[in-house]
């Protein structure tokens, strides 16, 4: 599966993303870095089908992402592209376990409880699995968000700032788990300021205000 963004731009007042192109596919690991406000999250939003670009084209396996109906784009984020957003997007009314299984179970799919528990153990959140998001530390929260995306088992993972504000041990767990997913053959796109990630990535895409491009 190949995701390609060509010459995409999006403006918000004075800020925005200008003329950027990237490509990611299964078995690749791409780091996107750049200064705050240069449009890294906007880029992820656009390539995940969450935000339509002003110009440019995003395609998945050669098919234009934004020519698909919105329903199909949402379905893609459940089946092909796992997207971990930057914000505090766990559902506060649900436990960690329920948050992790929600994307599949609310879409009518069954989850393998054993697999979910193994993933929780790998991420070190098994002890807080029945807690509510408000009871978690920052590290546990980010790792729970990551678990929610990994459990979908999509071929491509888009991850926004997975280690920001985490202590080193939590950050190490997150990097390790994402690397394992990459080793399993998944494509991983990480927006990060964490230089440790760059050791996994053959190439780093540094986003500047003027845009840029990289293909893998």
């Amino acid at each position: 599966m190949t995701l390609k963004a060509e010459n995409i731009s999006k403006t918000f007042g004075k800020n925005g993303l200008a003329h950027s192109s990237i490509s990611a596919s299964e078995g690749s690991f791409l780091c996107i870095t750049g200064e705050s406000g240069c449009g890294k999250t906007t880029l992820l939003n656009i390539i995940s089908g969450m935000l339509k670009p002003d110009t440019g084209e995003v395609s998945i396996d050669g098919k234009s992402l934004y020519s698909l109906r919105e329903r199909e784009r949402i379905k893609l984020r459940n089946e092909k592209i796992g997207y971990m957003t930057q914000g505090n997007s766990l559902i506060p009314e649900l436990t960690v376990w329920q948050n992790i299984v929600a994307p599949s179970e609310l879409s009518g799919k069954k989850t393998d409880s054993r697999k979910v528990m193994e993933l929780a153990q790998r991420l070190g959140i098994d002890k807080v699995i029945d807690s509510y998001p408000s009871e978690l530390s920052g590290g546990e929260y980010r790792r729970s968000l990551l678990a929610r995306v990994i459990v979908l088992d999509t071929p491509l993972l888009l991850v926004d700032e997975p280690t920001s504000n985490l202590d080193e041990s939590s950050a190490a767990i997150v990097r390790e788990v994402l690397y394992e997913e990459y080793k399993k053959g998944k494509g991983v796109v990480v927006v990060t300021h964490d230089r440790e990630f760059q050791s996994y990535s053959p190439e780093t895409f540094e986003l500047r205000n003027g845009g840029g491009s990289i293909e893998q």
């Binding site: 329903r71 379905k75 893609l76 984020r77 459940n78 957003t85 997007s89 994307p103 609310l106 879409s107």
Partner: peptide, 20 residues
């Protein structure tokens, strides 16, 4: 709003969100 955004980001359909 943020709940809806969060659910949409992980591929839960708008119909299902309205249902909830």
């Amino acid at each position: 709003r943020s709940r809806v955004g969060s659910l949409l980001s992980v591929g839960i359909s708008r119909g299902k969100i309205v249902e909830i």
